[in-house]
Design a protein around this nucleic acid. Structure first.
Length: 287
DNA sequence: ACCCAGGATCTAC
DNA sequence: GTAGATCATGGG
């Protein structure tokens, strides 16, 4: 399906479709990838550093071996999913979706690390993306493992669990969320979760479990379910999506939105949400 | 000084 | 079960 070749400092993958790194990394699902002046994205996922570039159907991954690609990056970038099918279906839903999909045509929903996603989206609540990224990078620099100059792993649950709230506060400046981070890390040590566990539950059950972690409510729970790749029909509703739902579709309350998106987007709700969120937040769709 | 950001929690009804 | 106040932080 894909042809993979090793190079002197990484690999190249042929036959790539529907993959624009800027769309993938800037659409709000992850916080630890940044554009390098050299034109590629660099970042760390699950303890592994990579440089990412896509040109004419060829994915270049520097710092990655063939083995690491099959063991990890293939799933991380969701390369087993054909986004052409998803985009065709969503584009035919209505004109807003057609616009949103055309704008974010290179989005792929990543399969991210559960604990990192949990903590990252706890930090995201009532916060803006630049600050979220700073909080997370501070956390990684102080309590993650050094990889190379300027790059660290995301801290383990046990590393964060043994910190005081004050230590977390001094490090992150995350305000009242420091208590949530501390409590969630401690609970995760006792009661962890993964993608497989939540994909074998109904979405309602999975949400209920996630909301037992302090700082996780309905919106953050859906972000976690979607961005660890457990539930493709999770539909996170933040201030931007709320605006879209109100102005484009005339649904207001959380219950109205839930009922509408389920019926309207079905099993593609998560993808629909992400195309809409990206297009609205970037000002391509006015709402 | 005020408003906002990928909201959640706590309290009161 | 649901409306309202409150929660730290930094940027506009």
């Amino acid at each position: 399906m894909y042809k993979v070749e090793e190079t002197i400092d990484g690999i190249i993958v042929h036959g790539i479709k529907d993959f624009v790194p800027e769309h993938v990394f800037e659409c709000g699902q992850c916080f630890r990838w940044n554009k390098h002046p050299g034109g590629y994205y660099q970042g760390v996922a699950s303890g592994k550093y990579a440089e990412v570039m896509v040109n004419d159907g060829v994915l270049t991954l520097k710092g990655v071996t063939k083995e690491e690609f099959y063991d990890f990056w293939f799933e991380y970038f969701d390369l087993g999913t054909d986004y052409s099918v998803i985009k065709d279906k969503l584009s035919s839903v209505d004109e807003y979706m057609e616009q949103a999909v055309s704008f974010g045509k290179g989005i792929r929903i990543l399969n991210q690390d559960p604990f990192e996603t949990l903590i990252s989206f706890i930090i995201s609540s009532n916060n803006n993306i630049p600050r979220i990224k700073k909080c997370i990078e501070n956390l990684c620099r102080d309590y993650g493992t050094y990889i190379k100059e300027g790059f660290y792993t995301f801290p383990s649950a046990s590393a964060l669990a043994e910190l005081s709230e004050e230590e977390i506060s001094i490090c992150t400046h995350a305000g009242y969320r420091c208590n949530y981070i501390s409590e969630a890390a401690k609970l995760f040590e006792i009661k962890s979760f993964d993608r497989n566990m939540f994909s074998n539950m109904t979405i309602e059950e999975a949400r209920k479990v996630l909301c037992t972690y302090k700082g996780v409510g309905p919106k953050v729970a859906d972000c976690i379910l979607l961005f660890i790749g457990a539930q493709n029909n999770a539909f996170p509703v933040d201030v931007w999506v709320r605006k879209v739902m109100s102005k484009l579709y005339g649904v207001e309350t959380p219950k109205q939105i839930e009922g509408f998106q389920r019926e309207y987007f079905r099993d593609l709700a998560g993808y629909a949400q992400q195309y809409l969120f990206y297009a609205v937040r970037e000002g391509f769709i006015k709402a």
